[in-house]
Amino acid sequence: MACPHVSAVTALIKSVHPNWSPAMIKSAIVTTASVTDRFGMPIQADSVPRKLADPFDFGGGHINPDRAIDPGLVYDVDTKEYNKFFNCTIGLLDGCESYQLNINLPSIAVPDLQNQVIVQRTITNIGPVEATYQAVVEAPAGVAVSVEPSVISFTAGGSRSMTFTLTFTAKQRVQGGYTFGSLTWSDQSAHSVRIPIAVRTVIQDFIADTS
Rank of each mutant, 00 (worst) to 15 (best):
D54I: 10
Q120D: 03
L73W: 02
H191W: 08
L166N: 02
F86K: 10
G181I: 03
Q120I: 07
S186C: 08
L113S: 04
P65Q: 09
V129L: 13
T79K: 09
R50D: 07
A68Q: 07
L73R: 05
Q204H: 09
T169F: 00
V143H: 02
V129M: 04
T32N: 14
T89D: 02
G142Q: 03
A141K: 08
Q134S: 15
L12F: 13
T155P: 02
Q172V: 14
K26N: 13
S98R: 12
F168W: 00
F85V: 03
G95C: 09
P18S: 12
Q114W: 07
T201Y: 00
T31S: 15
M162N: 11
L166A: 11
S146P: 06
D57C: 08
I126Y: 03
I43T: 10
A141T: 13
V77M: 14
E81R: 06
A135T: 05
V117H: 01
V110S: 01
H62I: 15
G142L: 03
R200N: 13
I152L: 13
V77N: 02
S107P: 00
Q204E: 15
Y99D: 10
V16R: 14
I90E: 05
P42H: 09
P140H: 04
L113F: 04
G157N: 09
A208G: 06
G181F: 00
Q114P: 00
I118R: 12
F86G: 01
L113I: 08
D187W: 05
I43C: 09
P71W: 03
R173A: 14
G177N: 14
T201Q: 15
G176T: 05
P196C: 12
L52V: 13
Q116A: 06
S98I: 01
P18W: 05
S161D: 10
N115L: 08
D76T: 13
A139V: 01
P42K: 11
A208K: 12
P111N: 11
T122W: 05
R194H: 00
R173W: 04
V30D: 05
L166F: 02
V193I: 11
R50L: 14
V202C: 07
P65I: 07
S211R: 14
T179F: 00
A53T: 09
E97R: 08
D205H: 14
I108V: 15
L12P: 09
L113K: 02
H5E: 09
S159K: 13
A68F: 05
Y133P: 06
I69L: 15
T10L: 04
V110G: 01
I207G: 04
S27V: 10
T36F: 06
N87R: 13
V110A: 05
H5S: 01
P55E: 08
V74L: 11
I69A: 11
H191Q: 13
R200L: 11
K171N: 13
K14N: 15
N19P: 01
A2R: 12
R200E: 11
D205Y: 12
T201M: 14
